[in-house]
Simulated assay, not measured.
Amino acid sequence: MATLQKSIDKRNALIKATIELVNNNGFHATPMSKIAKMAKVSPATIYLYFENKQDLVNQTYIEVKAAYTAYAFATYHLNMPVEEGFETIWKRIADFKLKDCENAMFLAQCDNTPMIDEPSRQEGIKHLEPLLELWARGKKEGIIKPISDYLLYAYAINPLSFLMMSAKRSAFTLDKTHMEEAYRAAWNSIRVIK
C-alpha cells in the first residue's frame, strides 16, 4: 500500500512541476529534466508514468480540465432555468480562476498553444458538456443567441482569463461589484435581447 501511495505521490509531483514550469517558462522552455528535478525524481521515472513530454502535457491538461469542470458544475442542476444555470456556472468558473490561479493559468496556456494534441483537446471539451447542453437548451428556447459554441465561449468565458491575469499582476482588483459587472457583460454578450 505504501508503494502505491509513493507511486501516486511521484506522479502528482510530476503533474505539479509541469504546471508550475509551463506557467513560468512556457511549454518549449520546460524540458523533461527540469520537470524531473522540480518533482525530485530521476528523469527516467517520468517514463514510468508518461510516454513522452507530449503525453505528460496532455495528461496534465486533461486532469486539470477535469478538476476545473468538476468545480464549475458542482452547484449546477439540469433543471435550473437557462439564465440561472449560466450564472451559477459562470460564477463558479470565475471563482476557480481566481482561487486556483496556477491551474487556471495552465489551462489558459493550453488554450493558446498547439502543444495539446487534438484527441486531448476533444477530451477536454467533453468535460464542458453541461455548459454546452445548457447553451443548446438556451438556443432552443430562444434565450441564447444561435451562434457557434466557440463564439459563446470566446465572449462569455474567455474574458475571465484576461481578468484573472490582470488581477494576478495587481493591475485590477476583482471586487464583488466588478465581478457582478463582468457577469452581466458575459450574459449580455450571449443572450437574445428582446
Rank of each mutant, 00 (worst) to 15 (best):
S120V: 07
F73S: 02
D111W: 13
L132W: 05
E87C: 04
L56E: 09
A108P: 00
L98A: 09
D117K: 13
F86D: 00
E51M: 09
E63F: 09
Q122H: 09
T45Y: 06
C101Y: 15
D117L: 13
M38L: 15
L134P: 00
I125R: 14
K139S: 05
L56S: 10
K40I: 10
N52Y: 12
T45F: 05
A136D: 05
L128W: 05
D95W: 05
Y76Q: 00
R137F: 02
K53Y: 11
S42M: 14
L48I: 13
K139M: 08
A72N: 02
L107P: 00
T113D: 15
V82F: 09
P130A: 01
Q122L: 15
A104Y: 02
Y47E: 10
D100E: 14
A94G: 06
N103T: 07
Y71V: 02
R121F: 08
E118T: 14
I62R: 12
D55W: 04
R137C: 00
I125S: 11
E51T: 13
P130M: 04
Q122K: 14
N79F: 07
K139P: 03
R137I: 03
E141R: 01
Y76I: 02
T69K: 01
Y76L: 04
E123V: 00
Y47I: 10
W90V: 05
D117H: 13
E133P: 01
E129V: 02
A44S: 15
A67M: 09
F96L: 01
A44M: 15
F50M: 10
S120R: 06
P43A: 14
L132P: 03
H127A: 07
I46P: 06
F50N: 03
E118H: 10
D95F: 06
W135V: 08
E84F: 03
